[in-house]
């Protein structure tokens, strides 16, 4: 059931072949939804679900899609799945769906999805594709959670909405760093993560 190939499909994207840090895919949403932890987690889960399902569907019909119109077919499959996720969120978690605003819709054009559909699901069976989808979704979610945790901790002094930095710190003159909440700091946080990741994996460095 779990061959070597499936194992690689699942574990590689977690670090060595991470979609955000190494393949540089799906940056838009990584940056835009990470001002606090809760929307980041919801976004991560949505991407995992859409990704696993779309990988399986495309992989099942991969032999019947004519190559000339495959992009449109892929977009339609992904768009249908994203609409399901969006309606589900509006129904069960309205506040978060308001916070994420257009970014749930933008999962459709999230390059991780198209990238994985093109590179993996079109050439592999449903089971490895499913694992690849889950693996890449998880790899993406991990980065999202790290960035969001750093930004929420330093920007608002809380995690998941609970105050983490105690009151006496503020009494002694500690201030939240408002800059962390602003969009540009997301880029710089990701850059620092890339820095650490590449320093630990020298084979990934550019020359």
């Amino acid at each position: 059931m779990i061959s070597k190939k499936s194992k690689e499909a699942f574990f590689n994207p977690l670090s060595k072949d991470n979609p955000v840090l190494v393949q540089i895919l799906g940056i838009c949403s990584t940056l835009a939804v990470t001002a606090s932890l809760e929307p980041a987690i919801v976004m991560g889960i949505s991407v995992i679900v859409v990704m696993a399902l779309s990988n399986v569907i495309i992989s099942l019909i991969r032999n019947t899609i004519p190559t000339t119109i495959r992009i449109i077919v892929q977009l339609v499959v992904v768009a249908a799945l994203v609409i399901c996720v969006q309606q589900f969120l509006v129904a069960y978690d309205y506040d978060v769906s308001k916070q994420l605003s257009v970014f749930i819709g933008l999962i459709i054009t999230n390059c991780i999805l198209m990238g994985r559909l093109e590179a993996f699901a079109l050439n592999n069976g449903p089971w490895p594709s499913f694992l690849d989808g889950i693996g890449n979704g998880l790899g993406y979610t991990i980065i999202l959670v790290i960035v969001a945790a750093v930004r929420e901790l330093f920007g608002s002094g809380s995690l998941l909405g609970f105050q983490v930095i105690p009151q006496w710190c503020y009494d002694h003159g500690y201030e939240n760093n408002g800059l962390m909440i602003l969009p540009p700091m997301a880029l710089i946080t990701v850059a620092c993560i890339i820095w650490v990741h590449r320093a630990r994996n020298p084979e990934l460095m550019d020359n």
């Binding site: 880029l187 710089i188 990701v190 850059a191 890339i194 820095w195 650490v196 590449r198 550019d206």
Partner: peptide, 11 residues
């Protein structure tokens, strides 16, 4: 070195 390429572009 670890920042070369994509890292510095982000910054």
């Amino acid at each position: 070195k670890p920042l070369r390429g994509i890292g510095i572009t982000f910054i």
